[in-house]
Nucleic acid binder design. Structure first.
Lengths: 369, 369
DNA sequence: TATATTTGCTCAAACGATTGCGCAGAGCGT
DNA sequence: ACGCTCTGCGCAATCGTTTGAGCAAATATA
């Protein structure tokens, strides 16, 4: 098809002429392969792109477009199956209806559920989510941030991998709203939604103490992450309150099955051997189970276990595992509420929310009383 | 700041004049709040936006830009922390470097892992992924498709929820490449990467038969989904080959724990009671375990179990569950390879791949011999 | 010296939507 | 007949990039 410049058509007076001109020069209309635009509809209906745009974006009444024009335009749009080019709209309006999600590990069921709810909440409001994964690496995190910013997302939800809020505070000030989820920064005004990890650590430990345990070891994940630190704080406080400060034992450094496995191997060789282990994640918990079994010991008869996170399968292990459960769905929903509040008001917010975790009592704790 | 039209500046001869004119009219430069564009760099360096664009997009040599110009431009871009507006670029180039992912359930660990690998593979090639969730609903699926298309994704990877390939074939023909993952359509030329579900069903059943089981029931997920049908086919074929066609028992209709639970309740009341159950998903398998335990029976002494999918926790159940494992990571990577092959060649491909699942033997099968 | 080639860069038109401003005609009052 | 408001719509700029075409000056060639 011969290309030609619309600017040259200034001499044409009205839309009918336009159409005639077009049909004169264009190859036979290939409905199926032409992509529809405002201007193609404009040509065929005889209204300007302005009017077409206003009708199809629901601004018809605001601009007093006649009913006749409205139905003509809408029918043509439906007939040719028009769908607006969001990219072009984004460029003009400086809004992408997209939120960026930065997670440490999408494969982790905990974050997968978080992502799932966030995606659903976004869809409800005609937003989409760009999901990125840092694999707990701060370098990747920085790269992901750059990607999301240049894609002009309207907001960023992040479970940060590092411990420095600076970059997120800068983004929140100069670019788009940032909401932290699951993990927060001490001393930062950034909004967040987390669970009370201190209370989680405290309650888990207290449950063990209530049952007569004194040699309680704790296997942690990434030391620098705030949830980990808070859980540890809960653990140590509970131990101290029970007069067990000299029994405090903290091992490990990764949220992984292997870390739980190896650290348990070591713990089982200690004297005195711990009577209970508090695992700071579900993966660590599985590692504990593996090591305990390999050692020919039994839960809870030989050693008790409390784990973090609530996974479906935990009730079907033998024994069922006592655990701290976090309200993931509520967290995700609140987080999105904050995000949209911030986007819609065009103001930065500083709401910081801590939801309460709950203790799920099962059979993995022996009573030593 | 007073707005003015660059078109009016035609009388200015060169960039120095341009700059002077600008600095005359503009308010004092607010470096921190102005967003940098090609044209702002153009003004400050004295080169045209064309040249700036070519330097910063790595086309400098192709267009013979002098070293002097290159370093000046690059330094200024670095100094003001320029990052290109991807939206504008997308509009112009008709390419978004984005792939759309449509999954039935992001919260399902199986699909979460798939998503995780796909996101990582995309990132490697400077692509991002928009992840959507259909909750196994064809209506949602259609909505997600529309969203992705109007966002002009460069390709769509989908684990389809329905059984009609028509819409995807149309998209693949008229819009962007489509690659199916995990689930395929019979009789469609659409490219896909799945595992051999027939063989999975066959092997699982044969393992039970080998161990002397004859009353083998199967609890399925969504009947219409292709993987489900293939697994069922494998099951029935194995039964027939062993002369057990009259013992074929297929129950259930959902990939969920509850479905597995309820159907097992019913199966346990049958006479003769099945000696083994083949669960077509991990969730169904957990439901079976729950029901068996509630009935006061034991696995594998009273009833044997083979499950589908490979989850970390399955080795820590008592007994560890024998299962069919799918190579999720390989699937995702191959799928992305096909996608990029199609995008880069601008051709549609019809590669259809079936990877082999593997049987993981554990302790949930009793030998009745 | 005249002509061809190369070098280094610019012009201006796209991409497809949104939107502030403005304008012609109808209706109405006086 | 004149001015006023209201109706219904269009003009043209704009968002920030990319890109085909082309141009002047410098250099090479004849």
């Amino acid at each position: 098809m011969r290309k030609f410049n619309v600017q040259h058509l200034k001499f044409l007076r009205n839309h009918s002429d336009y159409c005639a001109y077009f049909s004169y020069f264009c190859a036979p209309h290939k409905e199926n392969t032409m992509k529809e635009t405002l201007s193609s509809i404009s040509q065929r209906t005889g209204y300007s792109t302005t009017t077409v745009s206003r009708v199809l974006s629901g601004q018809a009444d605001k601009w007093r477009i006649s009913d006749k024009a409205q139905t003509e335009i809408r029918e043509e749009a439906a007939r040719c199956n028009y769908s607006p080019d969001i990219i072009a709209r984004n460029l003009r309006t400086k809004k992408t209806n997209t939120i960026g999600l930065i997670l440490p590990s999408v494969a982790n069921p905990y974050f997968a559920e978080l992502a799932s709810v966030i995606i659903a909440e976004a869809a409800k409001r005609k937003y989409t989510a760009i999901v990125t994964d840092t694999t707990e690496d701060e370098g990747n995190e920085a790269a992901n941030i750059a990607t999301l910013l240049s894609r002009r997302v309207d907001g960023i939800i992040v479970a940060p991998s590092g411990s420095d809020p600076a970059i997120f505070e800068e983004i929140n000030k100069k670019h788009v709203p940032v909401v932290l989820v699951d993990r927060s920064f001490d001393g930062s005004a950034l909004p967040y939604v987390t669970t009370n990890n201190y209370s989680g650590g405290l309650e888990a430990t207290k449950a063990l103490i209530r049952n007569g345990h004194r040699e309680i070891a704790c296997i942690q994940g990434i030391k620098s992450s705030v949830p980990n630190r808070k859980r540890i704080l809960g653990y140590t406080d509970a131990m101290k309150k029970a007069g067990l400060e000299d029994r405090i034992t903290i091992a490990g450094n990764e949220f992984s099955l292997q870390n739980g496995y190896l650290e348990t191997k070591l713990l089982l060789n200690r004297t005195p051997r711990p009577t209970a282990i508090f695992a700071l994640s579900n993966t660590i918990g599985l590692g504990v189970i593996k090591a305990v079994r390999e050692a020919g010991l039994r839960i809870p008869e030989d050693i008790s276990l409390v784990s973090y996170d609530n996974n479906m399968y935990m009730d079907y292990l033998t024994p069922a595992i006592s655990r701290i459960s976090q309200p993931v769905e509520d967290m995700a929903k609140l987080c999105m509420k904050l995000m949209f509040e911030s986007i819609e008001s065009k103001k930065r917010i500083t709401t910081q929310l801590e939801l309460s975790p709950s203790f799920i009592a099962r059979e993995s704790i022996a009573a030593l009383l």
